[in-house]
Design a protein around this nucleic acid. Structure first.
Lengths: 121, 121
DNA sequence: TGCAAGTCTGCGACAATTTGCAGGCTTTGG
DNA sequence: CCAAAGCCTGCAAATTGTCGCAGACTTGCA
């Protein structure tokens, strides 16, 4: 019954794909909608070549989808909730890195334009 | 304002830590409660040394906590919802790997003893 | 047609991770 | 005290991932 092994391998592949600061920022950057490679490169202050390489990886695993318009290639998230799911991991980040700031998580969420859940009910 | 960069790096570190099939299986194995190293090694069919090395990593990032009783070292999840959050990622796994099985996700969940959410309401 | 903008892919050097093995530490039982 | 059980750490080889650069491809425009 190696099914659990197979599933854990697939999950590990997915997490490996996401385990890179630039790719995480790309995904969060696409939270609000599609963007082209140049815009993403400017927003993240990265060379367009590297952005393209990251997007190629995300695309190979079907996490983003591509649309071409003229010379530009626009990318969007294939799963609308992927960016949310990633931010759900913030509580698991080592507490020692969040020192001195009890509302660090909310601050981080606000940085990505996520409304504070504590103020919505 | 490099805060977003810092947060993305912390998240990437966390994901990197989780991006290993053995460590994922360890975490899922601890879902139901604490276990000692030998039990984990037997359950996962891995050499105890490797299990210990994986646990050391998870421990360094405060994802698991250790309790010593005699010669045995028992480990438990530091965050009760970590295992759940990981399984929430199953919908993002490349659809091509889930061929021919529409309820593959539920099957995977059942493999780890998670009750089917579709049958609870 | 020619050229530039925008993006992609291949390749090589460099960096990080994984894994088995050897040895060490602590506890239990005699 | 001594030996074995249970676990941990350090180290080196092998594997894997990253990143910059060079070159290619397509599209828009003159």
């Amino acid at each position: 019954m190696p099914s659990r092994l197979i599933v854990s391998r697939e999950l590990a592949d997915l997490l490996k794909l996401l385990a890179h600061a630039d790719r995480l920022r790309l995904i969060e950057e696409l939270r609000l909608g599609e963007k082209d490679v140049t815009s993403l490169a400017i927003a993240l202050q990265l060379p367009a070549t590297r952005v393209s390489q990251h997007l190629a990886l995300l695309r190979a695993h079907r996490l983003v989808e591509e649309r071409r318009d003229g010379r530009s290639h626009f990318y969007r998230l294939a799963h609308a909730h992927l960016a949310d799911w990633i931010l759900d991991a913030l509580p698991f980040v080592d507490i020692r890195k969040r020192l001195g700031e009890a509302d660090h998580i909310d601050t981080a969420l606000a940085l990505w334009g996520v409304p504070d859940p504590n103020s919505t009910h």
